[in-house]
């Protein structure tokens, strides 16, 4: 059984239907890229999966690990192992990076009936993860994302992902706002986290990211529907020819 099974998902934002029947099946261990032009529904799909208020599924179903994902609150989805890497990570003035991540990890541990980590244990675990990713944990000493560069914000998302060890990671336009060096660092981090138990849904406008995070499957999203699926070569085709064919088709 697939890790994520989306069937005929429709979703509305502010009363307007944006997703118009999404079908997608993602198995553990796979990386799926979802590509599409602006306004095709890419971010709506990621927010609907993550459970953001205002992104209302109107019909269809999403099974995650065999459970009804749409029936869960946002925090429950996260605790069940869904991780959304934000296109625009939010700044949290006054909330220290370490405190934030400790609360997040302990919320997940508590949800699964595990003992919460104390500050010392947490910092130890954090250092180990940062080292694995060749990332400095310095930015965790600062308030979350406050005054971070685009690259730092995305690195921070990657580090959070490493600490929270999701089963399904949805990367929403992770490449936006990144120069090539930052893109490489973030991609390396993501690649290190690839494992047979973990799946990635990589949402992007450009093929560039997929040179670094090489997908198993590529889907084209247009006007709220997946209009074509294929292997990684589909991304190159899109890069060469653009989305014009698919916008017309939809």
């Amino acid at each position: 059984m697939a890790l994520l099974e989306i069937k005929d998902l429709h979703a509305e934002v502010g009363g307007t239907e944006i997703l118009k029947g999404i079908n997608l099946s993602v198995n553990a261990g796979e990386v799926h890229a979802i590509m599409g032009p602006n306004g095709s529904g890419k971010s709506t799909l990621s927010y609907t999966l993550a459970g953001r208020d205002g992104y209302e599924p109107s019909s269809g179903s999403v099974l995650y690990n065999g459970k009804d994902l749409l029936a869960m609150a946002a925090e429950e989805r996260a605790c069940e192992g869904l991780f959304l890497a934000f296109q625009y990570p939010v700044e949290l003035p006054g909330v220290g990076g370490t405190t934030f991540l400790k609360h997040a990890l302990n919320a997940k541990r508590k949800y699964h009936g595990e003992a919460e980590l104390d500050a010392m244990e947490f910092v130890k675990a954090l250092r180990a993860k940062a080292k694995e990713l060749n990332m400095s944990d310095d930015m965790l000493k600062r308030p979350v994302n406050v005054g971070f560069s685009g690259g730092e914000k995305k690195r921070n998302e990657t580090l959070q992902m490493a600490v929270l060890e999701p089963t399904l990671a949805v990367l929403d336009e992770t490449d936006s706002g990144l120069d090539i060096d930052a893109l490489k660092i973030v991609s390396d981090g993501v690649n290190k986290l690839r494992s047979p138990d973990r799946a990635f849904v990589v949402i992007t406008h450009y093929q560039r990211l997929l040179d670094y995070i090489v997908p198993d499957h590529v889907h084209v999203l247009s006007n709220g529907r997946i209009v074509k699926s294929g292997g990684k070569e589909l991304a190159h085709e899109l890069e060469a020819n653009g989305y014009a064919d698919y916008v017309d088709a939809a």
Binding site: G51, E75, G94, A107
Partner: peptide, 26 residues
Amino acid sequence: QLFYLRARGIPEHQARAMLIEAFMID
């Protein structure tokens, strides 16, 4: 901000308390 915290698994009431504290502590 509330959604960002909740998307990381932090329950809503705790997320609210964290943001209130952050607003003041600043």
